[in-house]
Design a binder for these strands. Structure first.
Lengths: 332, 332
DNA sequence: GTCGATCATGTAATCGTTTCCATACACTCC
DNA sequence: GGAGTGTATGGAAACGATTACATGATCGAC
């Protein structure tokens, strides 16, 4: 494959000049530039980004490690990250951690070796030694969606607390008392935060939460289904099932449908995370929507600030309750 | 950041030896290896993949250019590509072409500059000059999901012809006569193939297709909705709407729901592409399912063969009809 | 005791860029 | 006409790894 030397030879100039044309430096005369460009065309020259990166110590690449690209929430975030990065002249390498710390570490290692300019991580579970090293030795790092307690890393995330309070009030107003929650993993900041908000909101509304109405899943559909099944098998099943993310809501829905139960008469359903098709279900599902695109975009902006070693601050955006009909009709 | 020289100095050996340890060459004594490993740990050494790639002319990276990561079909394919690539020791860079040729070209260019070892493309519309150059100058290229006519590039795709015939027969057996098709873009091989299969199947079943029952969308939800609206506004609207992909089916569904029409009594609906939540709709949507994961995995395998300059063949996998209830009850 | 084989290790060239510095030439100004 | 100021260009040293080749040690066989 033709390199800069071939172009230089073909155009009868030095490699330095070709390089200047490549980086459109002003210190090149019009005719010379013309000659060089012609030579590039003739040879089908494609600049070697690897060599350039080696020399400039910058790859113009960002790494993004997410839980699962099949989860529409992450997909939307990934998409936004990509768009914003491209607009800033960066490429994004996406790694699917599949919620497994060792796979997350695999990607952290790989991306570090590839010398990405910055890293966006949706951390799975607790901090691994590798991630700790990253922050200690100063790789530009930003957490997305989730945080890791006690780590001095800027984070861009949504806060669902207020929306969960709204949801519980909505449920209470509809006359429900027995509310069960399929929470996320205790190890994830989002899992903890949503559980805490749920508990607080219930107390505030004067509803009590039985132990058997609170169980933690793993943010995947299968666990949502299994937990919903256990809730429904209880001697006194809950009137409402609130799922901690959209996949577990899908799982719960599977179970409810499989039993031929009606929503909301037999059991009401609500979900943290909204997805496009909730609105098409009968009844449409009441959900809490997170600003996934905005999170992705802001995360890139914060990360690029960090890359340029400017001081940055964490970003918290509010999630918002979208009332539909899966918890009952509002008597407006 | 510590480099191989620092490690060599710290361990009291030459850089060559460190490199040998890095690539676990057998020509290094146990003690020396030990010393080197210790030095690496002490210095938090992370090998520089950029330098390695420059020297070895291989990045162990694959590029994947898809239409839209938000489309669950592409997301599933991307996920499978990633898994298979990781298993083979490769990283994947995903580019979202957003069905725009110029954005596709942007990614082709970028990925070529980054010297990916191979490129997987779901081509948007017709061949661009850039893509033509790729095949002419021999970058390892494999088409995924779609093909480009007259280009000598191996492709991994699904064939929906048989499934579409099955669908039309199913529809006919249920007594419907007036079937409308929201086709994909004429420029995409998948669009053309599905339209042709639909027309053939209709003829074979003795049903005729009115001009006003055939309109091309762009594989995005909005076009599906608009076209469905035009179908339903016709003096004699169709009994069945068949959408050429899942997003246009979603759009059509939006429109049907907005008009308060019942499925399948007022209008039946079927979709090319199956997605997880179709089963939860009332009624569940009859759809044609493509083996997205299998496509992704096979594509990586074919591409890696090409990377190693072994001869490869295109792969065609069948799509399959999944009968649910959105076209009417089967009187079994 | 010498020769050749085998093994561990080191030296230095190389990959394709960028960029610092030097140089050569053309002006302008006194 | 020579000093000073730009401007376009070239030469060559990085960047951090890999690897062909060289070297020196050890060892067994004769």
């Amino acid at each position: 494959m033709a390199g800069i030397k071939d172009v230089a030879a073909h155009a009868g100039v030095s490699v330095a000049t070709v390089s200047r044309v490549l980086n459109d430096s002003p210190r090149v005369s019009a005719e010379t530039r013309e000659k060089v460009v012609t030579a590039m065309r003739a040879l089908h020259y494609t600049p070697n980004g690897v060599a350039r990166s080696l020399r400039t110590e910058a790859t113009r690449t960002l790494g993004l490690i997410i839980g699962d690209i099949l989860n529409p929430f992450f997909a939307a975030m990934a998409r936004a990250v990509e768009d914003e990065a491209r607009a800033a002249g960066y490429t994004v390498v996406i790694g699917n951690a599949d919620e497994r710390p060792e796979q997350q570490d695999h990607y952290v290692r790989t991306l570090l070796e590839q010398r990405v300019d910055g890293l966006l991580i949706c951390p799975t579970a607790e901090a691994t030694p590798l991630v700790e090293d990253c922050v200690r030795y100063g790789s530009p790092l930003v957490f997305l969606d989730r945080t890791l307690p006690g780590m001095d890393v800027p984070a861009v995330r949504a806060d669902g607390t207020a929306a969960i309070h709204d949801l519980v009030r909505h449920i209470q107003r509809l006359g429900h008392r027995r509310v069960a929650f399929i929470s996320g993993p205790e190890l994830l900041s989002t899992g903890r935060e949503r559980t805490r908000a749920f508990l607080d909101a219930m107390r505030e509304c004067g509803l009590d939460v039985r132990d058997e109405y609170l169980e933690a899943g793993d943010f995947q559909a299968a666990s949502g289904r299994a937990i919903a099944a256990r809730f429904l098998d209880l001697p006194e099943p809950p009137e409402v099932i609130f799922a901690g993310d959209n996949l577990m809501a899908l799982g719960a829905l599977d179970e409810i449908r499989a039993r031929g139960l009606r929503i909301p008469d037999d059991v009401a359903l609500a979900s943290f995370d909204d997805v496009a098709w909730f609105v098409h279900l009968d009844p449409p599902i009441t959900a809490i929507t997170q600003p996934a695109e905005e999170l992705g975009r802001r995360a890139v902006r914060v990360l690029l600030e960090r890359v340029e070693r400017r001081p940055v601050e964490s970003v918290v955006l509010p999630a918002r309750l979208v009332i539909r009909r899966s918890c009952g009709e509002t008597e407006s």
